[in-house]
């Protein structure tokens, strides 16, 4: 007579969970700093519950059956949250592989017939393997989400528009300028010009590692757009190497005001606004 593994496992639910927890806690890579034991137990319990509710004699042999969708959903949620919390792939992998150990342990204890033991072990192995595939898929997806979010943040952080004086805004550009970033830089700059009512914008490129013809093209576009808004644009922070490459590439920047440093750009801006910076002279009374 063929024993029903699903029934058997459901009966042994408590022991299964205990085995799994013991396996997980025994692992040297347990990350108590990222997740408490109670939380881990709760997560595992939820998963075992849903798994045992789903499996029956017929679907245990077909890991791709749609019966497992809710189980996979829980698993995906777990591995996604682990990816965000900063678990390593090995730690996440061990979570699901230790379940296989726990399952096999029970089968070994309960099934005496070697042929049947082998058969059911294979079934369980296949099932858990399909779970681990899903785990990794979602784990990597979670990581990718994190990377994507960080990319967005970097793009946002790297284009701060600073109001340096009444009517003067400065935009330090750090990192390579590509088309997508130019778009963000341009939009931010123009938006700020409107908001602050500035008439001079300083574009500081000392943080741009290299200027090629494409980057120069982007700069020229930004300057032209600022002019259309009715503001003057000064490019500052031209390093000697940049000056060399610009001239070697034959890029014409002659109709753009360029300055070597932010300080000289600011001085030029002051003179355009007819402002003067003076050293305070102490009046000595005797």
């Amino acid at each position: 007579m063929k024993q029903d593994i699903a029934k058997l496992l459901q009966k042994k639910k408590k022991q299964l969970l205990e085995n799994w927890m013991t396996n997980q806690l025994a692992d040297s890579a347990l990350r108590e700093d990222l997740m408490s034991n109670e939380e881990l137990r709760g997560q595992s319990e939820e998963f075992v519950e849903s798994l045992l509710n789903t499996i029956n004699g017929s679907n245990i042999a077909e890991p791709s059956s749609s019966d497992f969708d809710p189980v996979l959903e829980i698993l995906a949620g777990i591995s996604m949250s682990r990816a965000r919390q900063g678990f390593s792939p090995r730690e996440t992998g061990y979570y699901i592989f230790s379940l296989k150990d726990a399952l096999l342990q029970i089968l070994q204890d309960e099934i005496k017939d070697p042929v049947q033991l082998f058969e059911s072990s294979m079934q369980v192995t296949r099932l858990v393997d399909s779970f681990s595939t899903v785990t990794f898929e979602t784990f990597i997806k979670g990581r990718e989400d994190v990377i994507l979010r960080q990319t967005d943040e970097i793009a946002e952080i790297s284009t701060p528009v600073i109001r340096v004086w009444d009517g003067i805004v400065a935009l330090p550009i750090i990192g390579t300028l590509d088309s997508a970033r130019t778009q963000v830089v341009m939009e931010n700059l123009l938006e700020q010009i409107v908001q602050t009512g500035s008439s001079i914008a300083i574009l500081d490129i000392s943080g741009v590692p290299a200027v090629d013809s494409l980057v120069a093209q982007h700069l020229i576009k930004t300057v032209s757009a600022t002019r259309l808004m009715g503001a003057e644009c000064i490019i500052s922070g031209i390093r000697p190497e940049i000056a060399q490459t610009v001239v070697h590439l034959g890029i014409d920047l002659s109709n753009i005001v360029t300055k070597a440093s932010l300080a000289s750009a600011l001085r030029y801006a002051f003179s355009m606004l007819q402002l003067e910076v003076k050293k305070k002279t102490k009046v000595i009374t005797q």
Partner: peptide, 24 residues
Amino acid sequence: IQPAVAITLIELGLELKGVHTALN
């Protein structure tokens, strides 16, 4: 000129050379 309009004009290659521009 609105920021979006300015960007569009530049992308179209129109720099409005003959006219002056001001913010308001």
